[in-house]
Computed example of a mutant assay.
Amino acid sequence: HDFGGLLAWAKRLQASAGEKDRVHFRVKQADQPWFIALTRAQVSRGDGMLGRNNTLLTLCLAGYSSGWTEKDAYDYADQWNSGQREPLSDREVQRIVHSAFSGKYQGANAHYIAELTAAYAPDAAKPIGNQVWRKHAKVREDRQYSHLREWAEDLVKYVNTKTGREADYLQITTRE
Rank of each mutant, 00 (worst) to 15 (best):
D78Y: 12
A77M: 06
K11N: 09
L50F: 05
A62V: 03
N53A: 10
G5A: 08
V97N: 04
Y112T: 09
R134H: 11
I128H: 09
E141I: 11
W68R: 06
I128L: 14
N54G: 11
F3S: 08
N160K: 04
R12A: 15
N53R: 15
Q14N: 09
G18P: 02
Q94F: 11
E150T: 07
H98S: 15
L56K: 05
D168S: 14
H98E: 14
A73Y: 07
S65A: 15
A8C: 04
E19V: 15
W68A: 01
R140L: 07
D47V: 10
E19L: 15
Y76F: 15
A30K: 11
L116G: 00
E92A: 14
R85G: 10
V97Q: 03
A152W: 05
H136D: 11
T55D: 02
R40I: 04
S99I: 03
R52H: 07
L7W: 03
G51A: 01
E70F: 05
S89E: 10
T39Y: 04
G4T: 13
A62D: 01
E92V: 08
Y145N: 15
G164I: 00
H147V: 08
E166S: 14
S66M: 07
Q32G: 00
K104L: 13
L155S: 11
Y64W: 10
G107W: 01
P127A: 06
V159W: 00
D142M: 07
R85N: 13
S44N: 05
H1Q: 09
A73C: 15
V43H: 05
A118Y: 02
A152L: 11
F3K: 08
R40H: 12
R12N: 12
L6G: 04
G18A: 08
R52L: 10
F101P: 00
Q79M: 13
V132L: 13
I113F: 00
E176N: 07
A30Y: 06
N53S: 10
G46D: 05
V132F: 10
G48A: 04
H98T: 15
D168C: 09
Q84L: 10
C60Y: 01
L59D: 01
R165D: 02
Q42R: 14
A37D: 03
K11Q: 13
Y120N: 00
A119E: 11
K126Q: 12
K11A: 09
D154L: 10
I172Q: 01
G129I: 03
E115D: 03
H136F: 13
N109Y: 03
Q171I: 11
R85T: 14
P33S: 12
Q14F: 08
V27I: 05
P87K: 07
W80F: 14
F3R: 08
H111T: 10
E150K: 02
E19S: 13
A30L: 09
E86Y: 15
C60P: 02
L61H: 03
N160R: 04
D168Y: 06
S82V: 07
K20G: 01
T163Y: 03
L88D: 08
K126M: 07
F101S: 01
V156K: 13
L13H: 11
H98K: 15
L170E: 00
